[in-house]
Design a binder for these strands. Structure first.
Length: 567
DNA sequence: GCCGTTTTCGGCCCGACTGTTTTCAGTCG
């Protein structure tokens, strides 16, 4: 087990402990303390095992004697006695029942203990037969039945791209009515997936307009400042209405993350103030300190403005206090896109159509990375077909000057770690990307070996979508990523952040780690059609969440400097 | 369980909404 993987395991244990403690009816502040400890450890930059070996566990913020003891036991024995003991105190089924929205610890405990409901399946049966109406009341019974049905249908989080387009529709609808709305929540933070959509408005007419939005299936709740609806697509959208003067605090509050907000509040308290979704106020006099804009509120708290993508309690508050926030990369910083496909392999558009679309975006260069020969299913190119493609590219380069199309390939890393062509053939490419699609069910050790071997191959410049995850369908390969990152560093190779909406790979945690280790990254669209070139924005969101500045990315460089990295 | 430039004890982030507990607990974000 390596590095942050262990941090993740420890955090999981503490989160489970928190969940069970909550179910067991433990003091709620104890529960909060466990969760806070878990979050801190999960976001730790150092390896918890190292800290543990140095006997410095209690120097971690929010880790005191109690949690340190539990972590020590877990790292020594792989078990956590407190977790096991807590599990025995909680009736079977309580943690599962708490997964149903509307069921908290109290209701779950009551259902399990007094009504012998041990699972969501039991709950569904009980609700259907009417035997639980007495326990939860008529209205709740109906609501819970709906929630259980939704869980069964597996309506889960949307991809960022889906949320993005949905919100664009809603915003356009409001615009027609001359009502301004601001997206907040995890969408604004650029998270890879989005659960509910949060919107903010300052116009009181927004509530009325919102419930008439054509996509609305059902109004969940409707108060003077909060309206929640379900769309026919199954997505929950929450609209909050605030006063114009309160928009700054409202944006901070509803953008989150929750942990970021908690940290902001504690700074407010230290200064004798109170922070809520309306304003930053003096605790004694109730006088407003700041509320209109986010900048103003952060400023009063002694912080630089923190971009939404960084608001995850991953050290951004300290950085903002010390004036050390990164100057995050933007889409406009990109000079080119180094992964896209054409009809030569599995793309949907001709070289020229793709190139013109890329040029129109303002790029100076692109690379066509059509698949190599062993990816038969994607019409991978033989050496001979590549030679033909290069001629077509040469001709296009004449036509589109000074725009430059680089000759490239998405070379399949075969099951033994070798590539599809002879080393001498690769010399014809300007830039070479490698990726693993096939035999991905090999052991993590074997997959790691393949990735390492690819990075050590003299021709390879970039490792594309390193973990090969498909969000919602497939976990990423359990690679030894610290080793992959180290290998990239030692060989002067680049790692990709793939902007394809269901890849977004590397994710922000590992992209940040790679940057800290001094590895250059690239953000690409992996487009298969001209329209998909804009997917690079989701990759950029990942880069921003990874604290990347333009200098950390290779495709912000002018062509000449980029080529120096591709040897 | 954690923490401390008012505190080693007594706080802990804060408010909205729902339901049926007619004054507030439970849940959520």
């Amino acid at each position: 087990m390596v590095g942050e993987v262990k941090n993740h395991d420890v955090a999981e244990q503490l989160d489970k402990l928190a969940q069970l403690a909550e179910a067991a009816g433990e003091d709620r502040f104890k529960v909060i303390a466990y969760r806070r400890g878990a979050t801190t450890i999960r976001n730790l930059e150092e390896d918890i095992e190292e800290i543990w070996k140095q006997g410095k566990l209690t120097e971690i913020k929010y880790v005191g004697e109690g949690i340190a003891k539990k972590v020590d036991e877990f790292l020594r024995t792989g078990r956590m006695g407190a977790l096991e003991r807590m599990g025995e105190r909680v009736p079977t089924g309580v943690p599962e029942l708490m997964k149903v929205p509307g069921i908290g610890p109290k209701t779950a405990y009551k259902l399990a203990k007094d009504y012998h409901i041990k699972s969501i399946a039991d709950l569904r049966a009980g609700l259907a037969s009417g035997s639980l109406t007495e326990a939860v009341g008529q209205v709740m019974a109906t609501k819970l039945a709906e929630e259980v049905q939704k869980l069964k249908e597996g309506s889960s989080r949307m991809l960022l791209v889906e949320a993005f387009h949905l919100v664009a529709q809603i915003v356009a609808y409001f615009e027609e009515k001359r009502i301004e709305v601001d997206p907040a929540g995890s969408l604004r933070r650029g998270c890879s997936t989005v659960g509910d959509i949060d919107l903010l408005a300052t116009d009181e007419k927004a509530a009325e307009a919102f419930v008439s939005f054509p996509g609305v299936d059902r109004v969940i709740e409707r108060g003077p400042t909060r309206v929640s609806v379900f769309l026919a697509t199954g997505t929950q959208v929450d609209l909050r209405i605030v006063k114009k003067d309160e928009l700054g605090c409202a944006l901070i509050y509803f953008t989150g993350s929750k942990q970021h907000n908690i940290e902001l509040r504690s700074i407010a308290i230290d200064r004798g103030w109170k922070l809520n979704e309306y304003a930053l106020v003096d605790a004694k006099s109730g006088k407003v300190v700041a509320s209109k804009t986010e900048e103003h509120v952060y400023g009063k708290l002694g912080l630089d403005f923190i971009p939404p993508e960084l608001r995850e309690a991953r050290g951004e508050i300290e950085a903002a206090r010390d004036g050390k926030l990164p100057k995050l990369v933007t889409v406009d910083d990109l000079r080119g896109d180094l992964q896209m496909h054409s009809t030569w392999s599995d793309g949907n558009a001709e070289l020229e159509e793709m190139a013109r679309a890329a040029k129109k975006r303002g790029y100076e260069y692109i690379a066509f990375t059509d698949h190599s020969v062993s990816v038969g299913i994607a019409n991978g190119l033989s050496a001979e077909r590549f030679r033909k493609q290069w001629k077509a590219i040469d001709a296009l380069n004449q036509k589109l000057k000074p725009f430059k199309i680089l000759k490239s390939v998405e070379a399949e890393v075969r099951s033994d770690g070798s590539l599809d062509y002879e080393p001498s053939f690769f010399e014809n490419f300007d830039v070479v990307g490698a990726s693993i699609h096939q035999s991905y069910k090999q052991s993590p050790e074997k997959l790691t070996e393949r990735a390492v071997k690819a990075l050590e191959h003299p021709a390879v410049d970039i490792l594309f979508h390193p973990t090969n995850r498909i969000i919602g369908r497939r976990e990423g390969h359990a690679l030894d990523l610290p080793r992959v990152i180290r290998t990239a560093k030692e060989n002067g190779k680049m790692l990709e952040i793939d902007g394809s909406p269901n890849r977004l790979d590397l994710d922000e945690i590992w992209a940040r780690r790679a940057m800290q280790e001094g590895v250059k990254l690239v953000v690409d669209s992996d487009a298969h059609s001209p329209g998909e070139l804009e997917n690079v924005q989701f990759g950029v969101a990942r880069a921003r969440r990874a604290w990347l500045e333009p200098r950390h990315l290779a495709n912000t460089l002018p062509l000449r400097d980029l080529m120096k990295l591709c040897t």
